[in-house]
Every structure is written in C-alpha cells, then in structure tokens.
Amino acid sequence: MVDSKQKSYIIKALIPYLIAFYLFWAVYSIFIEPIIEKGPYLINLVGGNLIKLGAWTVPVLVLLKYLFKEDPWDYIKLRKNKLRGLVYGSLYGVVIIIYVTVSRLLTNGTLQFNPFFELDSWIGGVLLVGFTEEIVFRGFLLQKFEEAMGSKYANAVTALLFLLIHFPKWYVNGNLFIPGFMVNSIAFIFLFSILMAVLLKKTDSLLTCILIHSANNFAMFALGA
C-alpha cells in the first residue's frame, strides 16, 4: 500500500523526468532525426536506434533502480509470466493485424501487403519499438501512476502521454493539420493504450504489450502506412 507521502514523491519525481523526456524527443524528432535520415544508411540504421534506446529505455531502468529502489526487470514485468505473455501477445497480435488489415481494406477498397519493407523500419519500427516504447509507457509510467492515483486515472493519463509522444513525428511528416488523419490516429492510439493497460493487468507480463505493439507496427508498415 502506497501512502500519501509516497504518492507525492512519485509525482514529484515523474514531472521533471517527463519534461526532460518530451523536450528531448521533440527536439530530436523535429531537428536531429531528419538530418540523421539524410546521412549514411548505416548511421541512420544503427545511430537512430541507439539514440532511442538511450533516450527511452536506459533512463527508465536507471530511475527504477536508483531513485525508486526497484529491481527494474521485475518492476516492468519482464521476468515472470513469460509463457502467459507470449500466448496473449501472439493471440492479440494476430487479432490486431487482422483489424488493421480490414480497416485499411474498408478505407481504401484495396490492399497492398508487403512484408519486405525497409530494414530500418523492420528493426526500429517492429522489432525494437515494442521493447522501447512499452517499457516507458506500460512498464514504467502506467505502473507508477497507478501507485500515485489508482488504475482508472493512471490508464487515462498514460494513454494521453502515449498519444502526445507521437505529435513531433506527425508534425515532421506534415500530418498534424490533417483533420481526418488526426481524428483516426488519436482515437486509435488512445484506445490502443487503454487495451495495453488492461492486458498488462490481466497477464502481469509486459511481453504481451511488446508483442502486440510490434504486431501492430508490422501491419502498418506492411500495408504501406
């Protein structure tokens, strides 16, 4: 049971982390990443992914270990219930691939499915994205907010934060002021985050969220999103 003093400590610790994290990622996405993408392919492939691991995953593990005095891998739920996480993650991963495929078919009337998209999208957008992003949002922030404010508000706050982290990239890609894109994307991402929170609670394994997130991105890239 977390008392009021501990709840206050959690919020006070999370606020500077969130400010630094969002500020860095906005600056990186808008000003630095486009330069890296125009450079040599190998630097883009390796450097971009290392920067994301360094900015997203490493700080969370450090904060959990040294600020919150937790075992990072136990806390983010990657050490136990691996089989349950694998089963649920695989099952719901297939479901979300089907959902994205049907949605695209209904929207466009046709399908162009290509699983052999670019290597950098495969590595950064599929294989690593579930690991980097789910550790931050469901493994760390969701659980810390639950300790501070309960599940109901924690789910909503985490979903909002997960939504906001996409805005810099949308701005760079020119999608931020396209009403149809924004309405669909905001609704999907917010509900996706809520689903991840529910499944994390049900399976007690972050592996579930990682697999589903990667499956979703695979479908997006394979369908040309």
Rank of each mutant, 00 (worst) to 15 (best):
F181N: 13
W170N: 02
T203F: 00
L176T: 10
L161I: 01
T203P: 01
A187S: 12
I186K: 06
A187V: 14
T203A: 00
A197M: 03
F188M: 09
F192N: 15
L163N: 00
I210E: 11
M182K: 02
M182L: 07
F192A: 15
I210K: 10
N184Y: 11
A219E: 15
P168F: 04
T203S: 01
L164Q: 06
T203M: 00
L207R: 03
C209F: 01
P168I: 05
N184Q: 13
F192E: 15
N217W: 06
N175M: 15
F177I: 12
F192W: 14
G174V: 02
M182G: 02
V198N: 00
V157S: 06
S205W: 11
L163Q: 00
F162W: 08
L207W: 13
L163E: 01
L164M: 12
L195S: 11
H213S: 10
F177V: 12
F162P: 04
I189C: 05
T208L: 04
I189M: 09
D204R: 10
L164R: 04
L161T: 04
S214G: 15
S214K: 11
L206E: 01
V172S: 04
H166E: 08
L161S: 05
A215Y: 14
L160Y: 09
I178T: 14
N184W: 09
F181E: 14
N173P: 13
L211S: 08
L160V: 15
F177P: 09
F181G: 12
M182H: 02
S205A: 12
F162C: 04
Y171A: 03
V183W: 07
A187E: 09
V172T: 07
N217T: 06
S193G: 12
S185Y: 07
F192L: 14
A197P: 03
W170D: 00
N217A: 05
L176D: 13
G174Q: 03
F162R: 01
I212G: 08
L176M: 13
L195I: 07
L195P: 03
V157G: 03
N216A: 13
L176N: 10
S193A: 13
L207K: 06
I212S: 10
S185P: 08
V157T: 12
L191C: 03
V183Q: 09
F190E: 03
F190K: 05
L211W: 10
M220D: 15
A219G: 14
I189Q: 07
L191V: 07
A187Q: 06
D204H: 06
P179I: 07
T203I: 00
A197Y: 01
H166R: 06
F218W: 14
F167H: 08
I194E: 12
A215H: 14
H213Y: 08
S205I: 05
F167L: 15
N173I: 12
L163D: 01
V172F: 09
H166I: 05
I165E: 12
F167R: 06
L160T: 13
L160D: 09
G174T: 04
S205K: 05
N175C: 10
L160G: 10
F181A: 11
I194S: 02
H166G: 08
D204I: 01
N217M: 05
F218I: 13
S193C: 06
N216W: 13
F167M: 13
V172E: 11
L211R: 08
S185N: 12
A215C: 15
V172C: 01
L207M: 10
L200I: 03
H213K: 08
N216Q: 14
G180P: 07
N216H: 13
W170A: 00
L191G: 01
L200R: 05
A215R: 13
